[in-house]
């Protein structure tokens, strides 16, 4: 098994874990974490699967860089919304 394939499989597991988490968990912060896990899983699949032959592929690597930045942006916005609710006393974590 090449490292690429191994990490792709790990990514699949992370994605499934995150997906179940987003649906099942109730705390907002926890769901934000779960969504990030989903994203990380997808990133690992993107790069790992493309590099399963052992050849470095810059295209998915660039895509993942884009994806990471998008994930940070979304996380920050979600946290801002959750905190606004918490400040108004409507939400707990």
């Amino acid at each position: 098994m090449t490292p690429g394939l191994l990490y792709a499989l790990t990514g699949i597991a992370l994605f499934a874990l995150g997906l179940a988490g987003v649906i099942l968990l109730r705390q907002t912060l926890r769901r934000i974490l779960a969504f990030n896990l989903m994203g990380s899983g997808a990133f690992l699949v993107l790069v790992g699967l493309a590099q399963r032959g052992g050849v470095v592929d810059p295209v998915p690597q660039a895509m993942v860089l884009t994806g990471i930045v998008v994930a940070v942006a979304s996380t920050a916005l979600a946290l801002a919304l959750a905190r606004r609710l918490a400040e108004d006393g409507h939400e707990d974590g």
């Binding site: 994605f15 997808a42 990133f43 699949v45 998915p60 895509m63």
Partner: peptide, 14 residues
């Protein structure tokens, strides 16, 4: 979006 991105990852891999 996460689900969609996973789909894209699989398609690129395939």
């Amino acid at each position: 979006s996460g689900a969609y991105l996973m789909g894209v990852a699989l398609i690129y891999g395939a």
